[in-house]
Write a protein that binds this DNA or RNA. Sequence first.
DNA 1: CAAATAATGTTTACAGCGACAACATGAGCG
DNA 2: CGCTCATGTTGTCGCTGTAAACATTATTTG
Lengths: 202, 202
Amino acid sequence: MSANDNTVNIRSNKGGYHHGDLRSALIETGLKLLEQGSAETLSLREIAREIGVSATSIYRHFPDKDALLAALAAEGMAKLAREQKAAAKGKDGKEAFAEMGRAYVRFAVRNPALFRLIYTSLPSAADPNCVNQEESPGWLLRQSIAGLAGEKATAAQKRAALLRAWSLVHGLSMLILSGQIAGTDADKLIDEVVSVDSLKLR
Amino acid sequence: MSANDNTVNIRSNKGGYHHGDLRSALIETGLKLLEQGSAETLSLREIAREIGVSATSIYRHFPDKDALLAALAAEGMAKLAREQKAAAKGKDGKEAFAEMGRAYVRFAVRNPALFRLIYTSLPSAADPNCVNQEESPGWLLRQSIAGLAGEKATAAQKRAALLRAWSLVHGLSMLILSGQIAGTDADKLIDEVVSVDSLKLR
DNA sequence: CAAATAATGTTTACAGCGACAACATGAGCG
DNA sequence: CGCTCATGTTGTCGCTGTAAACATTATTTG
């Protein structure tokens, strides 16, 4: 369920001094604690405590807190991208896009702290070598939109369409998370907003 | 430029023990420091230091840090609403709405930390007695959209139109702030996205 | 296989933070 | 003038992130 999906070659805590796969454990528990609190209330010491390891051991795997948070964000981004793909699987065209949008908002609602973290742009996340590429949610939306925008759409038109689509789902997600949209069912909201007709695609 | 616009009836630090209008000073300096750092990096002690007052004096005016942040957020919300109004002044219909959208995004870009704070929903900001009403940006958008949506639009249609419009500008703002939209001119982005045609208004 | 070396985890320590309690000051009212 | 209470201060606590020095184990190498 976590980290890099290698079936964790740990002996998990064979008995003592060395943990085995602390790095994965850090990310895993980090994500877990993120489910019950924001990224700001998340503390390195709490993670360490949870794992049962000294507070400073973290620094053998990450230069500082931001680096760990960046790793969590990358993990979350991959998870979001996976869910988007899964939601659109089997569909194509308009429906594929709509399903991706739904998956996007649903992810935000179900993982508020993680979602916020993803889009909080710590300095480290702006690294050019970072995951801002193939696996990013924006990329996936781009692909689905590109197919939608029609053959004779210019590059600029496609770009604008992507921008509108992404802004729409992202904005809806954020507004829901910040409690600005009073107690309405999230799923209904998604359908109201993420209807392909609402995007000027061509 | 700050607080509640009352021309600060302070003697500003007449010489000693009592400051005069610490509460306003706290908000003012809080907003100032927010311009060069996030809400998380903002510390009560730093604000106090800046004003030249002891760290704990803050607690004579706010129960805790969240309360001060909530006050800053309220201040920011009012400022945003003011700029929206000003931008739409003299215009009406589609243009009024477009100008409001532009003002919204522009505000976000120019006041990133403050904008984020506004939509961070501290528990205190969820208070029912809070400013979530008339002066809120959402409310203003609602008004302009209501006018746009046509006479025979149902309430549900109007609600959906508002939701789409707000999501669009909010999402664009957030994406820009999080650095997801690579180095393009913000003003151009606004015009690309916030074109009334892109909203399914009727 | 044994010794050197590198990787990983621990202990100790420090400064900065938010917050509480006890105390000091002085403004406003009788 | 003197009381009172709002406002500002000092001292302290437990928490945080993180640096330095040290301990333990894995891994490489002779």
